[in-house]
Design a protein around this nucleic acid. Sequence first.
DNA 1: ACCAGCGCTGACTACGTTGTCATGCAACGT
DNA 2: ACGTTGCATGACAACGTAGTCAGCGCTGGT
Lengths: 359, 359
Amino acid sequence: MPLTTPPGGTPARRRPPGMTDVARLAGVSQKTVSRVVNNERYVSAEVREKVRSAARELGFRPNTAARALITGRFGRIGVVALGTALWGPASLQVALERATRAAGIAVVVAHTVEGEPDSVGEAVEWLLDQGVDAIIIADPVDEGVEVRSDPAVPLYSLGRSVPEAENLLAGASNAESMREAVEHLLDLGHERVWHIAGPATWYPACDRVEGWRAAHEARGIEPPPPVEGDWTPASGYAAGQRILRDPAVTAVACANDDMALGFIRACTEAGLAVPDRVSVTGFDDIPAAAYFTPPLTTVCQRFEADVIRGLGILLRRLGGAPTGAPEPPPHTDTPRLVVRRSTAPPANRRNEAPGKDAR
Amino acid sequence: MPLTTPPGGTPARRRPPGMTDVARLAGVSQKTVSRVVNNERYVSAEVREKVRSAARELGFRPNTAARALITGRFGRIGVVALGTALWGPASLQVALERATRAAGIAVVVAHTVEGEPDSVGEAVEWLLDQGVDAIIIADPVDEGVEVRSDPAVPLYSLGRSVPEAENLLAGASNAESMREAVEHLLDLGHERVWHIAGPATWYPACDRVEGWRAAHEARGIEPPPPVEGDWTPASGYAAGQRILRDPAVTAVACANDDMALGFIRACTEAGLAVPDRVSVTGFDDIPAAAYFTPPLTTVCQRFEADVIRGLGILLRRLGGAPTGAPEPPPHTDTPRLVVRRSTAPPANRRNEAPGKDAR
DNA sequence: ACCAGCGCTGACTACGTTGTCATGCAACGT
DNA sequence: ACGTTGCATGACAACGTAGTCAGCGCTGGT
């Protein structure tokens, strides 16, 4: 099968047009086309326009493979994400791709499997095979495996899940947001706030535990021991059955909304009214949270802002984005705690501070 | 800055090793290295091993850019996905990447923005710029915009959202699953089943409406008019407030679990017990569904199976997967309806058919 | 009048891989 | 002894782009 153009007649070529074809049509050299396409200097306005229209006419699209071959850069980053549809990870990934595309960089995803320790390593390996300029570990689970990396491809993480990688979300909102939620409960008059945490292998879970603990320590209070769940409503329910045997429990901060849902169910079944007898907060503000019974006081994460800021670091490390690096926007500190009806002052203080009415 | 190796001393090269380097170390030609790497025939076992160990020693990784440049194929497909963390789209995307990687093909994602009609077109354009062998439109929303495609890059869709594209999920489970749920309700003795649908712009929503309608028509029943929501619990709640004015309503099939949640809340507030007075089904089987009050009867989708089957079509079109195409597995028809406690016979038949006890 | 500098353009080459073709060698049948 | 066949290997070209450098015409300073 000859790939070259047949000598006579209309050249019915299959091959997509290249710079050489554009150059021929515009009557210039291939190099000049390259200059126009890359917006280099030293091209007269006249030639520039001629090349542009020729490119448009042929439907020319620069070949990224050839470009990557010679520059050694791919204009792509790899993202290792946990293969789950959970609200947090999924939202993070969307935010990541948005911010990346805005910087002219494409995203190649590889999903891991929770519980398979080496799936992170496999994903990294796969991405390195594909050719990427950098890799971001967005998997929030630390299975304790060290990732062997290519020295030429820097490794980053969203939430310090990998020691070999630089964390792009250093000052992220997890701990701080949870602290806000706990302080809300303490401000309402609760003496201590119990905590239903996420799995200890998840860094966001650890951060939230930290924020919960910090809120107590700032007031010189010793927090009760946290209970570990696995993000599912089932685990929140089970935790509730254990915690609620202690009559001192009046306020519980859950590490996500799903566990809060399960916990509320445990309360209901135990005959403990929410929020009259027990106050509950969630984390994530999933769409359903406002329609729990009662509507859940929870924390809304700022994925977009955090990711954009973190990606700014990465882009600067890569030596400037191809299409002009947007400066990371100033850290706009929007309110994160969404107060609904699952929180109220404890029963013994009900008359002092009347509960807010949301609706 | 000279890129070539300095003449004297240790060659402290920055450039990653190529086949030429491996060849030099193994004492063979570069072409032979290519043969070994690509598992071609006509290489003696001895040489093969020598090359392998040389490649391992240098940490050689074939350069995909160079390969793509000459073969004209990238080993990548682009996926246009809706930028949302909703359960369905997110699950689909994970399943898609899993199946694709198993076939040795990488995924480049581009997210759209719901409500921005041209964001699909922009995403496609962006993916074409990146260089992909095919594009899958996984965005479930049809904004009615036609997508201009490159003739060299075939366009596929997951759920026929784009007329220019071939649908990979032709016999998918949406309609059939919904039909199963509705038949479950009819079997329980309900005369008619109301429907809270998703937005009419979403194809999965249309398919579910279709399944709901089909279940009625198969029994010669005229279904009541469907009510359209927007997937959120809020819309399910609002729909409930409208529907529940009609005392004839005894069973409602919701197009997703979140709307079912909102609808249940509307029932509760209206003093209508679920399932004693009104039966409700959801769709998706999100983790929280089992912990609603009451636990939700819903439908579990088979993303993995559907996507693997659909991808089989694509891979065969692309002319066989690089690393050996796995044949699409036989369509294992696992049960999809998960019966929990939100469904029961209507009040007037309660004594005839006792409700199942799940727990 | 001459050269230096600037703006603009093109020729040539390298990038790392695969495709094509040629070549060397051994085994085999005549 | 000879050609034929098949395996194993290498030489060489090509893919489409960007980097390097040379060269053009013009301007301005000496």
